[in-house]
């Protein structure tokens, strides 16, 4: 947990001041969105909240709904 906060603080320190100084608001917005996603995911991981796996959904879509699958074995 503490490592998580440290790492994410580090990411902000590295990126944000330069962005603000150069007035790159578009970049800052994109950064913030992704940063928020990353932080949320990490927080979920650290707090043991199950993170949905996109591959599981994909497998469901392809195998169970579309019915495409290689025979096992």
């Amino acid at each position: 947990m503490i490592y998580l906060l440290l790492i994410y603080a580090f990411i902000i320190i590295i990126n944000v001041p330069g962005l603000i100084k150069r007035k790159e608001w578009r970049e800052l917005t994109a950064f913030s969105i992704l940063y928020a996603i990353a932080f949320a995911l990490s927080l979920m991981y650290v707090l043991d909240i199950p993170v949905p796996s996109p591959m599981k959904g994909l497998k469901h879509l392809i195998v169970d709904i579309l019915g495409i699958e290689y025979p096992q074995g």
Binding site: N15, L34, V51
Partner: peptide, 26 residues
């Protein structure tokens, strides 16, 4: 996709997302 001037600010957040996705995807 976002139409940015530089890709550098996105490196670390995306790497962070990748780590968590990698850790939880399977």
């Amino acid at each position: 996709l976002f139409g940015l001037k530089s890709y550098l600010p996105l490196v670390l957040p995306l790497a962070g997302i990748e780590v968590i996705v990698a850790a939880t995807v399977f």
